[in-house]
Design a protein around this nucleic acid. Sequence first.
DNA 1: TATAAAACAGGGTAACCGGTTTGTTTTGAG
DNA 2: CTCAAAACAAACCGGTTACCCTGTTTTATA
Lengths: 207, 207
Amino acid sequence: MPEEARRRTRTNDPEGLRQKILDVAEAAFQEKGYHATSLGDLMRAAGVTGGALHHHFPTKKAIGLAVISERVAAAVEETWIRPVSTASSARDGVRNVFAMIADELDAQGFVRGCPLNNLAHELSLADSDFRAALERIFARWRDSIADKARSDRDGGNSDGATDPDGFAALTVAIYSGAMSMAKTAQDASMLRVCAEGFLEVRPRSPT
Amino acid sequence: MPEEARRRTRTNDPEGLRQKILDVAEAAFQEKGYHATSLGDLMRAAGVTGGALHHHFPTKKAIGLAVISERVAAAVEETWIRPVSTASSARDGVRNVFAMIADELDAQGFVRGCPLNNLAHELSLADSDFRAALERIFARWRDSIADKARSDRDGGNSDGATDPDGFAALTVAIYSGAMSMAKTAQDASMLRVCAEGFLEVRPRSPT
DNA sequence: TATAAAACAGGGTAACCGGTTTGTTTTGAG
DNA sequence: CTCAAAACAAACCGGTTACCCTGTTTTATA
């Protein structure tokens, strides 16, 4: 029984709708967190009915897992892994990523934090499926930096760190922690302070 | 109209009950987060009725703020600020705290994460009162480490860092980030790796 | 074109949420 | 001992939650 102004033609675009749902879910989880985001919020923001949402994602958890494995992983890949792997050295790549992100945050005026760390803090204790998915991303993040540092060293680049794995772990830890403080302070300066302290030239020999 | 097995004597202990509520709230927020913890959870865990809870804390937010300013701040004071300030040097104090916490986590077999960072990630974007309270703790944490590093330097301790504020910021960032990874991996080893990389003896002069 | 499957619409629901209200019990100052 | 205030108990509220169910429309395949 069509209502008066029923849409004449409905275009089925399952993949497009799925991506739309993930778009709004990714943004909402980043702004408000997983628990604080209701399915109603997502339906409203995506302009999607409950039936459509339930068709693509049977549960809220399924949306969360898809956001993590498809969107958060891709974001890490794009902002960290690729820039570092194509840089002149691991140390130089890390320095550039820190600077780029700090500039971005200053430009937009507020700090929403690292998507991976935001979700990791909220979900890794609550659900082991979430935890496993998030840990995989952390591991890949560290491994990619360590690989770059290793290839620097093997290539005779003295700019590299002594221990590739330690350098990678430190990089991710410092970024995560600095971003945590930046988010709490709503000020990106802590990112610069930490990057400088971390990547400063090692003292040649104390005077 | 007393029920059959009514408690004969009720002991009015307002302060004790308040502390009991904060006890269970602190634990629940640490385990499940603020949003995922319902007032019903707290009532059940504390053995308190809704009326009593509402008498001490008018809103859930009031409980959250009290946990932050009374419990989380005290925890940072106890596990970080006091040990570092009484250590032989800032660097040595930081090293000891890292080791102590890693040992504790190994002993208990699971990682719940840093209470301050857990709440900071979940609440600092949602509510500015929460954010301000959390930022104050971060600032005091950094300041106390920087003060120690400054007094090292002024005392002629060459073990100290070049820049006290930078050292303090790096320390908090590395701890926060390493704990974030430890929580996601449910493995404390990342704390040790990062502490070693951070506090390793500076290379005297490359061979 | 016939037909099954997929895609979507939208109302419905039971449980639960944070918070309040009302009323009873205990305490302690005068 | 009196009695007002504090401390506590328990029922209760409207709103929201995640999820489900039934039915309709579109699309793919034959």
